[in-house]
Design a protein around this nucleic acid. Structure first.
Lengths: 137, 137
DNA sequence: ATGTAAATGCATATTATTCGCATCTTGTCT
DNA sequence: AGACAAGATGCGAATAATATGCATTTACAT
């Protein structure tokens, strides 16, 4: 029995599919697309229709449980658990490898914005370029 | 005769449609979607098929003339002229108003990343929250 | 245990974006 | 200037991600 199953978010009906999506996101080390999640579910025995996964992700998004991003403006959104700590990614233009950045350059910047008539709820930052392996073309 | 028409980018065949897309982007104060551009073309007399606009934007993107972004993970990409100076946006969650940020918090941060086996080509930063008018719900 | 509101399975719709191909333009070479 | 080749556009149709509708099933409060 995982921690998730003990701390089920309040106000959300508990179903096999939702538990499964949540634990897949828990274990993921990088953001996953709806289809990624769907196929991972297939492997672990539980299955869910793709549209159901979308509906679950939409719910989780509204509840603030997951974050949705469009990495490198690809045509597919990816989702990750909202761990309530900053995490940003550096994406390699060539091999699409995703590196995680540990510190956030925004921390000192955001408060300044607050003075300027904008109440900041969050931000996305994406760095793109070439990773170590792809540096030399 | 506008400045654009005098400084046409090299290596790109000059057509009515391309000139039109470029001057619409020149005059735009915020990023535009392909459809936005298409309808603006209709108004100014020139017209172009939507697929043509997409093809033009794709070309401009490859040539580094425009930047493509997905604001607030909407399902529609928006394009803006690459003015070769940093510009980031703060997007209001409620009314989707877009505020332009003049300074970039990344400037001091990026060189640090360079040391860490990643060659940075560029970045996207998006701040979301509530603007002045929407602050009080 | 039962009833009800809500979730899922499944198929089908929607929407942004891309592709194919015939026709038309642009820029080049003479 | 005229003609040609490379490439651009018009237009329609294809693709792919995501959303929706509805009948059936499930979770949970009573």
């Amino acid at each position: 029995m995982t921690e998730i199953q003990n701390n089920w978010p309040t106000g959300i009906k508990r179903t096999k599919q939702r538990e499964s999506v949540l634990s897949i996101l828990e274990e993921a080390e990088k953001p996953l697309s709806a289809m990624d999640i769907c196929s991972k579910m297939g492997k672990s025995g539980d299955t869910a229709w793709l549209s159901t996964v979308y509906r679950i992700l939409e719910l989780f998004l509204k509840k603030g449980i997951v974050l949705k991003t469009n990495i490198m403006n690809s045509d597919m959104a990816v989702y990750e658990l909202n761990r309530f700590k900053h995490k940003h990614y550096a994406v390699c233009i060539n091999c699409h490898k995703i590196l995680t950045m540990d510190n956030c350059p925004m921390e000192k910047f955001i408060p300044k914005l607050e003075d300027e008539d904008f109440y900041v709820m969050g931000h996305n930052l994406e760095i793109f370029g070439f990773c170590k392996d792809c540096k030399s073309h």
